[in-house]
Design a protein around this nucleic acid. Structure first.
Lengths: 360, 360
DNA sequence: ATCCGGCATGTAAGCGCTTACAACCTCTTG
DNA sequence: CAAGAGGTTGTAAGCGCTTACATGCCGGAT
């Protein structure tokens, strides 16, 4: 008889004066299906070990009761949580949002749920978030950059939680990383500008404190300039918040000078800052590449649409997220013992905001 | 004696050949501190119930062993998970990212961790994410919009998980909502344009399928126009993806006509589309508000910086996230039985992209 | 007919915490 | 000085699952 007998159903349905969480539990599904709890568990987790007839009966019962397994019970019994974590500085930046979006879709496909933490560029906050995630039993973690308290990495290591550093890749880093070489990227930008004949450089950057990526970018810029015996003068280096406002403000500072004191090339720490500078330029009646050349970094969606189209470096952050998730999953599945580092190349997008030196 | 005796410490530290998760557990902290497991639990969860001396001893032991409580065990025993969930369409949109950022910071402050799910505008995917979150025992959930399968809301209700609909607010909605009235907002935009003398309207919108907000916007626009016996002609309504590309393409379509066939006012479904249209305008040598007026919606960061500054409606999405989180927390804490709906006002930002009708 | 291997299912012991209840101790109070 | 109040700590029973191990069954080999 395929028909589950009515009396059993009734007894399971009526006995609803339950304590605890108040939710339907596996026992009740087992009772209704007329099997043991072990069988219900197997029907869901190792279906091939259960005969088809029984499996169908279990599924039917589970549906009838609208049962959703309790993840806490499952986690406790199996020491598997199917949760992964990601720590990023902030969601207010398109590039990190893209990374999360990539990770989340891959993880969701594999039955993992993603915990999100934002550090707001505060290492202490990042550590706190990681601890919260460890308490929640994340099975793997992705974290942007390597500029974090040693304690954070120690905690991950001592609990054997696999992790990858995302967004930045550095030769000789002690951490598995998936990202690109920030220094090399900025060397390439500077070389592009040098090849156009520029010699007087200014820079507008976000703060380098607690941010290995910005440090590497500044270093990359400086080393490329140094090769040509050039440097950014103190007065031509602006450091401030990563906002369009700051970009605009800095641009005014740099360009409200006699023509021969102005920089001809302006290297910005990211697109956002560069976009701000360009908006100030428009207001001042200056325009690239006639009056100056300017570069960004990130290739935000808007950067290739805005006039003048911004010369910048493109990084596929979604791809970074996808790769990070896949890599972590393969460690979780035991395919490899540790995530393998991958260096992606940032791609120089030469657009109209840079051009040959106009004034000598 | 304040000094925990060394032998106890040793025995706890050495017995590390543990099965299970392999992590340090509460028992060991209790043993090292020389108290019962109940006391350790209380020292962390209800510190006021434990004498100071004992509390210190427990904390010391916990630190020494580097103990992090196992959330699954805790959840199982207390039927509290301290997890909340948020479902948004996509992170690729600044406005939703801001909402998440607001929620996450409030929740983190209160010891809650946030599960993030993206539906990519697919109702089935949204339902799946909600089910995964229910399995994980989320104590509350925020979900963008009300355009979801009834099954989704039923699942939340039957499990008594408090939820709020965010971003959109509609009179008579059966759900507690925190957001603004999309229809009213677009009525206001249209009235602004009408007051400037415009009579020939075009519209560029994202698809309205599965999106109550877009539906409401279109309705709002139409009803405001109807009051003046106006309408958007079929050929003047462009529906497509919410990208700058589509905005640009549509703009070309609308404006590559004889001057007297062009619309004078273009209402866009959001800033992104409007920004795209403006970039196409620049390429075509047209500019607002001379040759046409255009409006957006969202007030993206860039919209107030870009030339010409875009007339749009500002919505404080971070605030929506903050309010949603606070509201859910107060239900969780039992302060109220259900989240109370809040209507926020979208704010019209008149900038230079709209101006008086130039041609008759 | 007997035995054994392999498969399907059941039994029951936890996983790491919380918490009701009990036990105890120290004061206060009549 | 006995009794009770109030505060601190311990005991132990689960929370809802998974899984090692035991059991029972069937068919083919002996």
């Amino acid at each position: 008889m395929e028909n589950p007998d009515k009396t059993r159903l009734k007894s399971a349905t009526l006995r609803r004066a339950r304590g605890g969480s108040g939710r339907v539990k596996l026992d009740e599904v087992a009772e209704l299906a007329g099997v043991s709890t072990a069988t219900v568990s197997r029907a869901f987790n190792e279906p091939e070990k259960v005969s088809e007839a029984v499996r169908d009966r279990v599924m039917e019962a589970a549906n009838a009761l609208n049962w959703i397994p309790n993840a806490a019970g499952r986690a406790l019994a199996s020491s598997r949580t199917h949760i992964a974590g990601a720590i990023i500085p902030t969601l207010d930046n398109e590039i990190f949002a893209h990374q999360i979006s990539g990770m989340q879709s891959v993880f969701a496909e594999h039955g993992f749920t993603l915990f999100l933490g934002c550090s707001n560029y505060d290492p202490a906050e990042g550590l706190k978030q990681v601890q919260a995630m460890l308490a929640r039993g994340v099975e793997a973690l992705a974290i942007v950059g390597e500029n974090h308290p040693q304690e954070l990495f120690d905690a991950l290591r001592s609990r054997k939680v696999p992790y990858v550093v995302t967004y930045s890749y550095r030769q000789g880093s002690p951490h598995p990383s998936i990202g690109f070489d920030n220094g090399a990227a900025f060397r390439e930008i500077v070389e592009h500008l040098l090849s156009l004949g520029h010699r007087r450089f200014a820079a507008i950057f976000q703060p380098e404190a607690n941010n290995d990526r910005v440090k590497a970018r500044l270093d990359g810029m400086r080393s490329a300039l140094a090769k040509s015996n050039l440097a950014v003068a103190t007065g031509d280096l602006c450091i401030g918040t990563s906002t369009m406002e700051f970009g605009a403000e800095s641009f005014r500072l740099l360009m409200n000078r006699a023509a021969d004191l102005r920089p001809t090339a302006i290297v910005c720490g990211n697109d956002n800052i560069a976009l701000g500078a360009l908006s100030a330029a428009a207001e001042m009646g200056l325009s690239a590449p006639m009056d100056f050349s300017i570069t960004g970094f990130d290739d935000l969606t808007i950067s290739s649409r805005l006039m003048p189209h911004l010369t910048t470096m493109k990084v596929d952050n979604q791809e970074i997220g996808v790769r990070a998730a896949k890599s972590l999953l393969s460690v979780i599945n035991g395919d490899v013992t540790s995530p393998i580092s991958v260096e992606l190349k940032a791609q120089l997008k030469v657009r109209v905001s840079t051009g040959p030196l106009q004034r000598q």
